[in-house]
Nucleic acid binder design. Structure first.
Lengths: 152, 152
DNA sequence: GATGAAAAATCTGTGAC
DNA sequence: GTCACAGATTTTTCATC
């Protein structure tokens, strides 16, 4: 799909202020609301805009612990990889899964209410995942998603 | 703040389908829209709901490369850490920053249009960051945010 | 082929209960 | 927590460039 300056302005403002109404977004991008609406719709159809994400503060909800786990698997075949990922999806406390090129290497972010709870999840849900050769854990202090200042 | 079952249902549905109108959300949670609205407002004031995030498909926009970089800094003092983070914030291609406990250790996710562009960013914007002792790079294949299936 | 103005459909936010 | 409603917003239509 072709993207022009108006689309770029719309995307930039949408990323900076996702709660904006189409009317206000249009005003900021210097077009009418009908135009803004049609273009947003087109970006959505093209798969560039994939909807919204509600941001939840886990800590405010009482989930104090977030840990980033990095796995090395003990096999390199795709089936082992798929089995591992399928098992991971069954663990609700895993809120993010990342896979990488060039290694049998996966990263998971796990949340827990507190350290005791985390130890439980780790023992019962993480260590029991299939095909694990090695795990490295890092306690997360903060995550900043910088999607306000996009390079578009 | 106290969270009850209705709040939990609202949050769960909001996470699963963030584009839902308050009316539809209310219907799914089994309350009227006025109730849903007031509770959402309360969750917002309590800092549990922190607004929305527009999801963009970088690949559809022509940003083909995402790399996860892990840094070890050469100093352990807080000032070096802050200087490093301040410099990172100036790089628009860095879309995520994570900091960890127990190490002078930071992770960044960087996007680029293609490998050539990534090499440029790496050489001119990453290697020039202050206080770097070591960098490890992993090419991202996929990120799945599993926030649909929350443990609440 | 895309735009703006304006109308129609829908939703949000508030007051009364 | 529900119901009702005015005001705002979203989405469609249509004439125009």
């Amino acid at each position: 799909m072709q993207i022009d300056d108006i689309d770029r302005r719309l995307l930039r403002h949408l990323l900076a202020e996702p709660d904006l109404s189409t009317t206000d977004l249009a005003a900021r991008a210097g077009v009418t609301s009908a135009t803004a609406w049609r273009r947003i719709e087109r970006l959505r159809e093209a798969g560039i805009l994939r909807g919204q994400h509600a941001i939840i503060d886990w800590r405010a909800l009482g989930w104090e612990v977030e840990v980033s786990l990095r796995f090395t698997l003990d096999k390199t075949d795709p089936r082992a990889f798929d089995e591992f990922l399928a098992a991971v999806r069954e663990v609700p406390e895993v809120i993010e899964i990342q896979t990488f090129l060039g290694r049998v290497d996966v990263r998971l972010n796990v949340i827990a209410r507190d350290m005791r709870h985390y130890q439980e999840i780790y023992r019962d849900r993480i260590l029991t995942l299939p095909h694990i050769a090695d795990i490295e854990s890092l306690m997360l202090v903060s995550t900043i998603r910088k999607t306000e200042s996009l390079p578009i």
